[in-house]
Design a binder for these strands. Structure first.
Lengths: 189, 189, 189, 189
DNA sequence: CGATAAACGAGACGGTACGTCGCGTCTTGGT
DNA sequence: ACCAAGACGCGACGTACCGTCTCGTTTATCG
């Protein structure tokens, strides 16, 4: 039906790919529109015709390419699910191919509204899926029905972010376990 | 007996003050060396004579002026202490005079090693004081002796950061309470 | 059909004019790219986009605007022609509108290859026309056919340059006459 | 008697030497006061205490060290003397140890009054000695008694300068001979 | 021999211009 | 009539020397 909702230039895919490659390779600040244009074989004018700024282009690229994905586990227990989720988040923040992008976009959130919106959408999308974990835990009677999914995820993801980025310390398996333990105990019925 | 070794230019204090003012007012990216120089009545050359980069200057300014301070509460219970601490962190991240600086320096941590070092030092310094809270809680028998202070603070502070910055949601009293509740329950003996 | 290939910025003419004005007014050393840019209503970036250096810009300006021109006399005798030529050179080196430029470019020749090239071209172009004077003198039998035009012009122009610039003495009519006399006698058959 | 008329700093000799070395090695424009100070083990302040400018320092260095000297020949004939003199001038303008200095100071003459004064003094001093050549030639009856020495030297030296610097052509023995021939014939009785 | 004044070392400083970079806009010529 | 190609204005970058300045520390002369 909708042939292409994708409002954008013909080489949008190349542009997105180049932008994300550069983001991963050079970091947010060293990514330049001129280099994106050069690499994707497009004129800078074209870039600005479709996206008003570097932020907007990156936001579009991140949204379209969705390079950051998390699989929602189903291990049969809340503890198992949250442990798996923590490992997944840790992977996102440290794996070679995703760390640079994840850190770039999330740390830009604080200063760049457009990228923050991407981050918010990312977290919002995830929340829907994460909700399943908690729904199942409620069914199993592991937690009460009024446990707030977002708050729990804030604790879990925030702790990892704080440890890795704000404190600059490594995300060891022990750390993941200790963190998950506290959270699980904290919400258990 | 000489008061200070003060490695730095004669107008270091003005420079630091202007730099932090600009940081708060304009954000990290819109802070320019030329404007710092202009405002502090110093030549750009002098800035570069003493600090090799914007990051280094800001790191020095943040270290010297220490605009971010937290008071460590002592309410008689772990729950009370952590609630107060959460409120204190929330204040730092939202109060008019500190939010911009705190967010700027913390979000820059991910991309700027020199500022990250300032952040790490900030967290390290705090940790020593926060340890008291947990020592007292252990004495009272509220928590086990092997509870890791840093991990708990990661959970608490990380959740606030995630909620406010990564999710873009407000830090309401309810949210602070819910978060603290989970953490306190999670570590309680 | 297009009038000019004009490799150069759109306001090339203004730029050239301003550059030469400044050269005449301020001298070579006090001519700054920023002032050229400012006066010609162009950004400094544009200057550097087209010319890699001050020398290159001035070389282009001098070549394009050709502010230094000499008319080749034809008085019917070698003595008359050389006298007129000497007067013409003296005019170039002393007249208000040309002296500053002539002296600037010629004295820069010794240190600035790019300007030297302009000077060489200037002398080369002139030589072709000056050759006529000597061809006519050979026809009239005033001088031998193997007289070297460049050498004679070196003597004449060099003497004026030496007197005015190296010795710092004025170019009086008597001096011009004395110089021409020696040269004419020196080459006469 | 004159303990030291030398108004100047204690290390004046080193300073002069370094200045001339740098002048020869780097050219006029690339010679910096800071480098002269550094090399001669003197503080920049000392330089400015004694000489108000780069030009003044170089003028003093050139005057004190007198690195450019010409020997006045006595071959028994005007032609021989002028030939020798031309060779001497050519040497000054091309020999490795003197060319850079000679060209630097002479070409600066046009723009730098203080260096021009040095040049004028150099030419004036020489003129006294060159006068001898012409006095002898008058005695021998080779030239008339009213021949102007300065004018003849202007022709000779100016031609070499013009050829080498303004035209950028080499000073070959043939060129020196041709030039001298014309001048000698031009002034012969 | 010790006071005293000149000369000096050290180097921070304000200032001007440099040449460069990337942004985001504007102009233009070819299809 | 459109739109790519790219010239352009703009602002900041980080650097190089300039010439000035203050402040102690030598030196060397003279009382």
């Amino acid at each position: 039906m909708d042939a292409a909702v994708t409002a954008g230039p013909r080489k949008a895919q190349q542009i997105y790919a180049c932008a994300l490659d550069l983001l991963a390779a050079e970091g947010f600040d060293n990514l330049t529109m001129e280099e994106v244009a050069r690499r994707s074989g497009v004129n800078k004018t074209t870039l600005y015709r479709w996206w008003p700024s570097k932020d907007a282009l990156l936001a579009a690229a991140l949204t379209a390419a969705a390079p950051l994905q998390i699989t929602i586990p189903d291990t049969g227990s809340l503890r198992g699910d949250l442990t798996a989720l923590a490992a997944e988040i840790a992977r996102l923040l440290t794996a070679e191919d995703t760390a640079a992008i994840a850190i770039a976009v999330l740390s830009a959130s604080a200063q760049r509204p457009e990228l923050a919106a991407v981050g918010h959408r990312f977290f919002g999308d995830r929340l829907e899926h994460e909700q399943q974990i908690f729904d199942r835990a409620v069914e199993r009677g592991e937690i009460g029905p009024d446990t707030d999914t977002a708050t729990v995820m804030d604790l879990l993801a925030g702790a990892l972010w704080s440890h890795l980025i704000l404190r600059g310390r490594p995300l060891t398996p022990e750390y993941l376990r200790a963190t998950t333990d506290i959270v699980v105990r904290g919400v258990s019925a």
